[in-house]
Design a protein around this nucleic acid. Structure first.
Length: 311
RNA sequence: GGUGGAGUGGCUGAGCGGCCCAAAGCAGCAGCCUGCAAAGCUGUAAAACCACGGGUUCAAAUCCCGUCUCCACCU
């Protein structure tokens, strides 16, 4: 049997707990379920408080994969995640275990769940393009892209330096007009039961604000302090994490405590918005209100249906 | 008690006599997204009788007077 369950949605809606609940529910049916983490910041060892990572006890004995598997200085990319997560999921499935993909990292979820092939990459070319961008600016780079690959250029925002660079990188490597776009969301890698958690935005924003404050109370600053010697400042991905970047700014005196917390709350809310704008387009998702008390049983019966159909 | 400064949209904040039926940013709302995606990027609605009262002026958010509030510093 090959079952695959995914729990997605904006941050702060209880995805992790739901993942555990689903695994526990499966257990009562004699089926093993294990969590495959798809939160790009929970990959990092040592980043716990600011990523709202479940503690060992909170996991209630349910095995978690791809949690704490990267060092703070490692770069994380969706393309690489795909090459790790897919074989892992397949392996679990061949062992009769139901993988439960849990996380809100949009592109990472898509990289696993959809027909999604990444174009090649070349560190040297990339580095020189990045340097060039700094020197000549976006508009010049964009013009260059227009000349080399008009189709690609037409899809990219002329001010989005990062994406212009990546497009140029691919064009340079392949010599083709890359013209890539996001995969068709109706074409799944595997049949999947996708569950989405969401709810009233105003209340979520309020909740995320409180969460930011709580992170500081729980010692986020100390956590970040302890990550400095092992290189969080140098971590290309990790240093950009919401909360961590602000804690670093506070440590450096660039932000006051209050400002750091405020900015963290603000960025988190904005992140939640972008997550919604992304996930809303996925027609496979079965949405539930995270505040609705009856969501649990409704979700579990969906799970039963899914397992029954495939099992 | 004294001196100085400040009171502008939900917040920050520009304007300091006519171009102000008042900029901008943030928040809000919407969206984009193929190797940093908790990143990067785009678009956009509404919202201010410019603390209150009085005056000067053809004309005041802008000048004057008073009141209140806040912040500094002084005693």
């Amino acid at each position: 049997m090959t079952s695959l369950i995914a729990v997605v949605g904006p941050t702060g809606t209880g995805k992790s707990d739901l993942g555990i609940a689903i695994a526990k529910h499966l257990e009562t049916k004699g089926i093993r379920g294990e969590i495959v983490n798809c939160d790009s910041m929970q990959f990092y060892k040592g980043m716990d408080i600011g990523t709202a990572k479940l503690s060992h006890d909170e996991r209630l004995g349910v095995p978690h994969h791809l949690l704490d598997w990267l060092n703070i200085t490692d770069e994380s990319t969706a393309a690489e995640y795909q090459t790790v997560a897919r074989p892992l999921i397949e392996d679990l499935q061949t062992r009769g275990i139901v993988p439960i993909l849990v996380g809100g990292s949009m592109l990472y979820v898509a990289a696993v769940l959809n027909e999604f092939g990444f174009a090649a990459r070349d560190a040297e070319i990339r580095a020189s393009l990045e340097a060039e961008l700094l020197e000549v600016g976006e508009s010049e780079m964009y013009r260059k892209l227009q000349k080399l690959a008009p189709d690609t250029a037409s899809r990219i925002d002329p001010k989005n330096g990062r994406r212009i660079v990546r497009a140029l990188e691919v064009v340079t490597i392949t010599g083709e007009d890359f013209a890539a776009k996001l995969p068709d969301l109706n074409e799944s890698w595997q049949p999947v039961l996708e569950i989405g958690l969401t709810g009233d935005r105003a209340r979520l924003v309020e909740r995320l604000g409180k969460r930011a404050e709580l992170m500081w109370q729980k010692g986020l600053l100390e956590e970040v302090q302890s990550l400095i010697p092992i290189g969080i400042r140098e971590g290309k991905t990790s240093s950009h994490a919401i909360g961590y970047s602000q804690a670093l700014a506070e440590i450096d005196g660039r932000l006051s405590r209050e400002e750091a917390i405020g900015e963290t709350a603000r960025l988190t809310s904005r992140y939640a918005r972008r997550q919604m704008s992304w996930f809303r387009r996925d027609p496979r998702i079965n949405w539930f209100d995270y505040q609705d008390d009856s969501r649990g049983s409704a979700i579990l019966s969906l799970v039963d249906e899914h397992i029954g159909r495939l099992g």
